[in-house]
Measured scan of single mutants.
Amino acid sequence: LTVHVGNVTYHFDNPEQAEEWAKRMAKKYQGQIHVKDGQFRIE
């Protein structure tokens, strides 16, 4: 699973971990989480 934050990409084996990280990053950067094809993108 991949989480994109700006132009930085993080890889996770565990979906719960990826989702948790995406939520934390979205809160930190006050962005929206977009989920597409098993990838999380924070914008």
Rank of each mutant, 00 (worst) to 15 (best):
L1G: 13
L1M: 14
L1H: 15
L1D: 04
L1K: 09
T2S: 11
T2V: 10
T2E: 09
V3L: 04
V3G: 01
V3I: 05
V3Y: 02
H4N: 07
H4K: 12
H4F: 09
H4D: 03
H4Y: 09
V5K: 01
V5W: 13
V5P: 01
G6D: 09
G6P: 01
G6Q: 06
N7L: 09
N7V: 08
V8I: 12
V8T: 11
V8H: 12
T9H: 06
T9G: 03
T9L: 10
T9V: 14
T9N: 04
Y10M: 04
Y10A: 02
Y10K: 04
H11K: 11
H11D: 05
H11Y: 14
H11P: 02
F12G: 00
F12T: 00
D13S: 13
D13N: 12
N14E: 10
N14K: 12
N14P: 00
P15M: 13
P15D: 05
P15V: 12
P15C: 15
E16K: 13
E16S: 10
E16R: 12
E16A: 13
Q17V: 11
Q17Y: 10
A18P: 00
A18S: 01
E19D: 04
E19P: 01
E20T: 06
W21Y: 11
W21M: 04
W21S: 00
A22C: 06
A22Q: 02
K23V: 09
K23T: 06
K23N: 09
R24F: 14
R24K: 14
M25L: 11
M25Q: 04
M25E: 05
M25W: 06
M25A: 05
M25Y: 08
M25G: 00
A26K: 02
A26I: 04
A26W: 05
A26Q: 04
A26H: 03
K27L: 13
K27R: 09
K28V: 06
K28Y: 12
K28W: 08
K28M: 06
Y29T: 06
Y29L: 12
Y29E: 04
Y29K: 02
Q30H: 15
Q30W: 06
Q30K: 14
Q30E: 07
Q30R: 10
G31R: 02
G31S: 07
G31I: 12
Q32N: 07
Q32D: 05
Q32R: 08
Q32L: 08
I33H: 02
I33P: 03
I33G: 02
H34Y: 13
H34Q: 11
H34P: 03
H34F: 14
H34T: 15
V35T: 05
K36L: 13
K36T: 13
K36G: 07
D37Y: 01
D37I: 02
D37F: 01
D37Q: 02
G38K: 02
G38D: 06
G38Q: 02
G38P: 05
Q39Y: 06
Q39T: 07
Q39W: 04
F40K: 02
R41V: 15
R41W: 15
R41M: 14
E43S: 06
E43H: 06
